[in-house]
Nucleic acid binder design. Structure first.
Length: 141
DNA sequence: CATGAGCGT
């Protein structure tokens, strides 16, 4: 009943939010193939959340660069106010590095805050990209 | 100046 501000974490993030005192130690055996934890769909684009509102893009990129080559990294900030929204995106060169980056940075501390790494969504279709390179919707008039 | 659970300029 005291579930105020229910955690709306996308997946498996609540495990850290809910102040897990002790593991349930479920006697049940892990059923399933010993495959790697594949959360969501594999992609080189990672969505990093839980970032400190004062964390910069360079810091995020530097931290994730330890697990692989970061092609692109950015901390989402409000264009109007200019303050960080608290999350960012990190793109690795390969999915393999992305997977390591997720399992390597997910649940870690950054600037005093627990961060979460997960595959980013917002993709029209895999292997499909619009050739709109001559127009820039973000260009202010 | 400030702190949340969110998928971008």
């Amino acid at each position: 009943m005291a579930m105020r501000a229910a955690v709306a974490a996308p997946r498996g993030l609540r495990r850290l939010f809910c102040t897990n005192s002790t593991s349930p130690s479920s006697p049940f055996t892990l059923t399933g193939p010993p495959t790697t934890r594949q959360m969501g769909e594999p992609s080189t684009n990672l969505f990093v959340s839980g970032l400190n509102k004062r964390t910069t893009t360079e810091k995020l990129r530097e931290e994730f660069a330890k697990f692989g080559e970061v092609v692109h990294a950015r901390v989402v900030t409000d264009r109007v106010s200019g303050y960080s929204k608290g999350f960012g995106f990190v793109k690795y060169a390969t999915i393999e590095e992305a997977s390591k980056g997720i399992q390597g940075m997910d649940g870690k501390f950054l600037d005093g805050w627990v961060i979460f790494a997960e595959y980013a969504k917002s993709s029209p279709a895999p292997g499909q990209q619009p050739a709109n390179n001559m127009t820039n919707p973000y260009a202010r008039q």
